[in-house]
Design a protein around this nucleic acid. Structure first.
Lengths: 270, 270
DNA sequence: GAGTGGTCTAGACCACTGT
DNA sequence: CAGTGGTCTAGACCACTCC
């Protein structure tokens, strides 16, 4: 006989969780419906309430369940995700040379929203920092080269929850020509970053988006007001100008339960 | 005085976790170094070992820590992520009309790998299914329209871990012209999906990638051999032909600790 | 106030890693 | 073998929701 891999019965809270997952997937417990109480689970499975709780906790972490504190946990109703389309890069570029009236309020924060775009508390912080390590490599500059670091955050004042967040870097040498760009009180800048760069004669040739995902830390969870089991999409965006220089690097986070990134790749005809 | 929001001290395991996170971020506990034992933590913080464990468990779920069972948990050394570049779409198209020798082994599985591409156990399953709901909408066909469903999976035989996974749909009407396409024993098809479609006269005009992220379920965790705290990138890929029809929809998962998606958006010149 | 889930404890027992 | 983390229990106590 071959050596059997791991024929052992999985631990009790895994069993309970799997059973619940199956019942949810089959539709026995439809979205919005409350789960059995911990007490019910623990008697049905002849285990302690703590084990039953671990099972429910596990499903929460996997994003199937929402709830808490006093209320019964319910099967999560999937949010409709807002699509953030890469076509916006071209739209933003087209707007750069449009009249100021059209450019009006096209900041990073507003673009990601899709809902209630008007009434967000918007904050920008500008700092001068030296580039080092990874960033210096990306910009292809010497370590220590000064850069402007900009942190953007918008918050929904009604909930106190973060609504958008990004951090971006531009080597100072590229934007010295326009002192206004060093002043955060001008934010949100009408027309966005591409227009800012336009004022110092930089035209963006292409934009590279690098997408990955991470689990939010405790502070992320708190800041965004996220449910358990929701990853953060982490997008690093490189703006490359017509002289083939990386002129801006920006890192942005997007909660994966409400945002979806869409990219279109046109192919050459035969 | 104003009503204070929630000035309460956070729970003990959160405190411990936050303290550890800070020490890790500061470099006091560098990557690869073992954490304090649960016993040490519990005595330092004057709490039960269970509380200390919850703290460490939390950090694991957030992806900062790896380890387990008998061994001390260690600070995770970030994996180098393999970049999956959208330029491959064009490369795959260019190969379609290349000689078979060049096309050789460019299947989905191999493309995502980047490492040890040769020796993977590859499996494909073809099923005929009726399209309904969301998928019928995307293809813009009537509900019930028959389609070919293809599930691809590759497994690293040395570890038993899943290495790639995708599921794709093509309405049968588009590929009836070539019966070979209905036969899974021809997989991996030399030249990939685009070449398959080429054999029935379909040219792909553009590809849309929709990216989001989810937490792996218990079975995902097991199948991929993932560590705790690693989200899955979920990519839905729409292939649109020169007649502007959606001819294929494919959903693929990528573990976010080893894969990064890169998309380049070229902008029109001024 | 009754019922719910959340935190925490003390301790038993098991599984795994090292020496 | 000793030491580690993983699972599980029973029960105390707290915070929240709903009636």
């Amino acid at each position: 006989m071959e050596p059997q891999p791991t024929p052992v019965r999985p631990s009790i809270h895994i069993q309970i969780a799997d059973d619940l997952r199956i019942r949810i997937a089959r539709g026995d417990i439809p979205p919005g419906t409350p789960l059995p109480t911990l007490h019910e689970l623990s008697t049905q499975w002849r285990c302690s309430t703590n084990s039953a709780r671990s099972a429910v906790e596990l499903l929460k972490r996997q994003g199937l369940i929402t709830g808490g504190r006093g209320k019964a946990p319910v099967v999560r109703i999937p949010k409709r995700r807002i699509i953030r389309d890469s076509g916006r890069h071209q739209i933003e570029k087209d707007l750069v040379r449009a009249p100021a009236s059209e450019r009006s309020t096209i900041g990073e924060a507003e673009m990601n929203s899709g809902v209630s775009l008007a009434k967000l508390k918007f904050g920008a912080t500008y700092t001068k920092v030296p580039l080092d390590g990874e960033l210096a490599d990306i910009f292809d500059v010497d370590s220590g080269t000064p850069a402007l670091r900009r942190v953007y955050e918008s918050v929904d004042p009604s909930t106190g929850n973060r609504h958008s967040w990004s951090i971006s870097y531009i080597p100072e040498a590229y934007i010295e020509g326009n002192p206004k760009l060093l002043d955060s009180t001008n934010e949100p800048w009408p027309g966005g970053t591409q227009h800012q760069l336009y004022t110092v004669g930089i035209e963006i040739d292409r934009i590279i988006d690098e997408v990955t995902a991470v689990m939010p830390t405790t502070v992320d969870l708190e800041a965004w007001g996220l449910d358990d089991g929701v990853p953060l999409l982490r997008v690093r965006r490189l703006s490359i100008d017509t002289a083939n220089r990386v002129v801006e690097v920006s890192d942005a986070d997007y909660p994966a339960d409400r945002i979806e990134m869409r990219f279109t790749t046109p192919l050459r005809k035969w």
